[in-house]
């Protein structure tokens, strides 16, 4: 039984990583193909670094990811606080149902609905081009918000409200009490929400595809590149991104275990 389960898990890991291995392997191909291997070479990494189109797309992706993650973290944390203060259960449930829509709905429907809306607004204000940086940013904030709210809310709910009352009794203003007492106790989940929003935004293709216009982010550039014959430079760039995310995740896990330890001591 034990060997059987080990073999099974090993097979699954093989299945999950076969395409990743293929990507890394062919990024070192000296030829132009991503399935006929000619020899080892690092030249595609060099050409990925000198490809201004790719670097531009990477820069745009990072701008959108940082901005949308930051804005949705601020708006979403405020929303979680406000929603918990709702007294009527009906309003609370209604707001939470709407919050769940972008998570539950198909990405393509979310993308299409935003595009129709943006095109309409663009026509009204007579914009030359209705889709671009602003619309893709709005779209990303929109699909990031629910994840931030759902990450912050449970932690906020579990926070002891007497702490804040004590701060108020000791003369803090409500705003000051919030930042001095509540924020420190929920900062891990705010950070988790931010990281989640950041990575979702970084990786999003479908919603960006319908809302970005000519503001080409990296997934959109990759999409356009895979329409033609793909050369290994796409694989080289993807390998680099994969490694960066890997490092980021490890750092995040180290930070997480450190804060766990701190909590354990306290």
């Amino acid at each position: 039984m034990k060997t059987l389960s080990r073999i099974y898990v090993a097979l699954m890991v093989f299945f999950l990583y076969a395409p990743v291995a293929v990507m890394v392997f062919f990024s070192f191909n000296s030829g132009e193909s991503v399935w006929v291997f000619e020899g080892f070479s690092g030249s595609w990494y060099l050409s990925a670094f000198t490809n201004t189109e790719m670097l531009d797309a990477l820069r745009r992706t990072l701008i959108v990811a940082i901005l949308s993650a930051t804005i949705s973290t601020v708006l979403g944390t405020a929303a979680a606080v406000g929603i918990l203060a709702f007294k009527k259960k009906i309003t609370k449930n209604a707001v939470m149902s709407v919050t769940n829509i972008p998570i539950m709905n198909a990405d393509i429907v979310t993308g299409v609905s935003l595009m129709l809306f943006f095109v309409f607004i663009g026509k009204i204000i007579g914009a030359y081009e209705s889709l671009g940086f602003t619309t893709v940013l709005i779209a990303h904030i929109t699909f990031n918000l629910p994840y931030v709210i759902l990450s912050v809310m449970p932690r906020l709910k579990a926070t002891d409200s007497s702490l804040q009352e004590a701060a108020l009794d000791l003369g803090c203003t409500p705003v000051k009490a919030f930042f001095k007492v509540i924020v420190p106790s929920i900062k891990t989940s705010i950070f988790t929400g931010f990281i989640m929003a950041f990575t979702l935004s970084l990786d999003d293709f479908v919603i960006s595809y319908f809302t970005c216009g000519h503001y080409q982010t990296l997934p959109i550039l990759i999409y356009n590149m895979t329409k033609k014959t793909v050369t290994p430079d796409v694989y080289a760039l993807s390998t680099l991104i994969f490694i960066s995310v890997f490092v980021l995740l490890i750092l995040y896990n180290i930070a997480g275990s450190k804060s766990d330890k701190k909590r354990g001591v306290a």
């Binding site: 990743v20 990575t199 995740l249």
Partner: peptide, 16 residues
């Protein structure tokens, strides 16, 4: 593998 771009993840299968 989820942190690898969805398009590349799919495209790698063409290589295979």
């Amino acid at each position: 593998p989820m942190w690898m771009n969805f398009l590349i993840r799919t495209y790698s299968w063409i290589s295979i």
